[in-house]
Amino acid sequence: MYRIVRKKVLNPTVTQMEIEAPLVARKARPGQFIILRVDDEGERIPLTVAGTDAEEGTVKIIFQIVGSTTERLNHKDEGETIRDFVGPLGMPTRTESIKKVCIVGGGVGCAIAMPVAQEFHRLGAEVTSIIGFRNRDLLILEDEFRACSDRLVVMTDDGSYARQGNVTAPLKEMLEAGETFDEIITIGPLVMMKFVTLTAKPFGVPVTASMNPIMIDGTGMCGGCRLTLNQDGRRVTKFACVDGPDFNAYEIDFDEAMSRCRMYFNQERRAHEQTCNLFKNA
C-alpha cells in the first residue's frame, strides 16, 4: 500500500499527488514513469513522474481525469492509500551534450515536460519553454515553468489567457528568425507532437517526443505499448515501456499511434460514465 502524502487540485480536471514510495523516489529520473493500481480490482495505468523528493521518499504524479481509473484515483484523499505503485520504468530523458533546449508541452503533457525542463535548467542548459492549453481554466504549472525557463511562451487555443494559438506558432517564428536548438523535446497530445515535428523538420532541428501509449505491465512483457518507427526505409517495432518513452520524433508513425490509442475508446467512455454514476450515488 502506498500513502498519498499530499494532494492538490491544479485545475478542474487535473490533480497533483505526492505518493510515499521511497524506493521509486530514490531512483526516478526525469522522463521515467510509474504504473499504479488504485485498488484490488483496479487496472494498471502508466503515469509519468512529475518530480521526486528522495529525502522524504515521495514521488509526485500529475494526472488528468479522463477515465474510470483516474476518476477513482481522484476520489482518494490525503492520508489514504493506493494499492500498487511501481517504478521507475522506461528510460530517462537524454540530457548529455544538450546546451540549448526547447521544451514544447501541451495540456496535461506539461506535467511531464516540467521535470524535464527543471532538469535541463539544473544542468545549466538554456531552456526555452512553450506551453499550450485549451483555455485559461486548464492552465497548469505556469509559475514552475517560469522558474526553470530562460524564456517562457504560454499559449491558449481560445486566447482566454496569454497568446492565442497553437504551440507550433511561436516555435515556427523562433526557427524562422534563425534560432537554433540542440534539441526540441515535445510532450503532449499525439496530434500536437506530430505538428511540432512537422514544424521543426524544415529547419533540421532534432526532435524527441515522449510517448504515452496503452500499457499493462510496463516491463516489456505484453507488447501493448508497441509503436512503429521508420528507420532508413524500414518499419521497426519498438516498445515504449522499455525502449522509450522518448523516441526520435522524425521516425515515429504518429498516425498509427493515434489510431492505436483509441482502441478502447468506447469501452473506456462507458466505464468512466459508470464510475461517475457510482460516485454520484454514493
Binding site: E43, R44, I216, M221, C222, G223
Partner: peptide
C-alpha cells in the same frame, strides 16, 4: 499494429491477471 491485434501475452494478461 492495427487495433485488434494482440500478443498472446497481452491478451492473456488482460484476461487472467487483470
Amino acid at each position: 499494429s492495427l487495433k485488434g491485434v494482440y500478443s498472446a501475452n497481452e491478451y492473456l494478461t488482460r484476461s487472467n491477471l487483470m
